[in-house]
Design a binder for these strands. Structure first.
Lengths: 163, 163
DNA sequence: GTAAAACCTCAACTAAACTTGAGGTCAAAG
DNA sequence: CTTTGACCTCAAGTTTAGTTGAGGTTTTAC
């Protein structure tokens, strides 16, 4: 064993470049714009999966491209890999994810993204007035103060910060 | 030498809690919400300065509170410490920074912040449509594709990503 | 059939932004 | 005056997100 050409194993009668062809790690890297080492890394963190061919090389289902795409998108929104992994692991295990599955993820992250955008927007709106005018004192300035989250009653004004 | 009480050295006739009093690292930590170790760290990176008293303990000018405030604000906008340090080092060296000085910093960071907000907003606007509808393929989806920056002509559409 | 390109594993390194700990000094309170 | 808490320095550890390199195997191309 070990000398059988993969294409003999994997392909039926169809052309090489067809839908069913599995992807090598290099191909995924090229097509996704993510380094091979990063793909290895993602796999080690459970973000993507691969099967191995006869020679122990990774072979990816085409769906991995979408997963990687999603990972990158989520990262751009500022979500850490661990959370992305959690979310991805809630995708159905056996079957390929449906549009509805992707939508659920999308909604989940959209919330985070919205919160992040709001936070930054609030920050921006205060930046001029606040730093500019010189009111940026530790106790009085809404831009400042570490009690970012509402709830535990920190001293001082978090009027704008946390509304 | 070494036994003189600091208050003898530093204070005039005025009450302890007055304007001129220098702050210990612990006080700065408490008032700024930043850990002592972080203040040490900031100092090592040139973000803040202190003088030392007789016993080699740090004593801070009150202005440090504003600097720390600014550092935290800038960090929230996603600016790395090294860049914050650069910006802060452009503040006047001898005199205390004026409102105008702070404004200059403010403007500088406001730009970054705006760009970041725009990026995230664009991302959000595409997230539903794009992930939701299932168009998230490596080649065609504007959410995806690594050529984030316009300029070098990557293959494929970056219409929405980079406009 | 051989050489180059691609892959494999595993360990170690990088960078940012700090934190923790050890071992020792200083200062404020009783 | 002594104890306790605040400080000091310096080295090492932590987390996130990977990259780099050594040493070895597989695939692909001529």
């Amino acid at each position: 064993m070990g000398t059988v050409n993969e294409s003999t194993v994997n392909e039926g009668t169809v052309n090489q470049q067809t839908v069913n062809k599995e992807l090598s790690v290099g191909e995924v890297a090229r097509r996704s714009g993510v380094a091979v080492s990063a793909l290895h890394f993602y796999e080690s963190k459970g973000l993507i999966q691969s099967r191995r061919n006869n020679g122990n090389q990774r072979r990816y289902h085409r769906g991995v491209l979408r997963r990687v795409a999603l990972i990158k998108v989520a990262q751009r929104t500022g979500i850490p890999l661990a959370e992305i992994a959690d979310a991805l692991n809630e995708l159905p295990d056996g079957r390929a994810p449906t549009a509805r599955d992707w939508q659920r993820l999308s909604r989940r992250w959209r919330g985070d993204l919205n919160r992040r955008i709001e936070q930054l927007t609030r920050l921006r709106d205060q930046l001029d007035g606040c730093i500019g005018c010189g009111c940026l004192s530790m106790e009085a300035c809404p831009l400042r103060n570490p009690w970012d989250q509402l709830g535990d009653e920190g001293p001082g004004p978090r009027l704008l910060e946390t509304d």
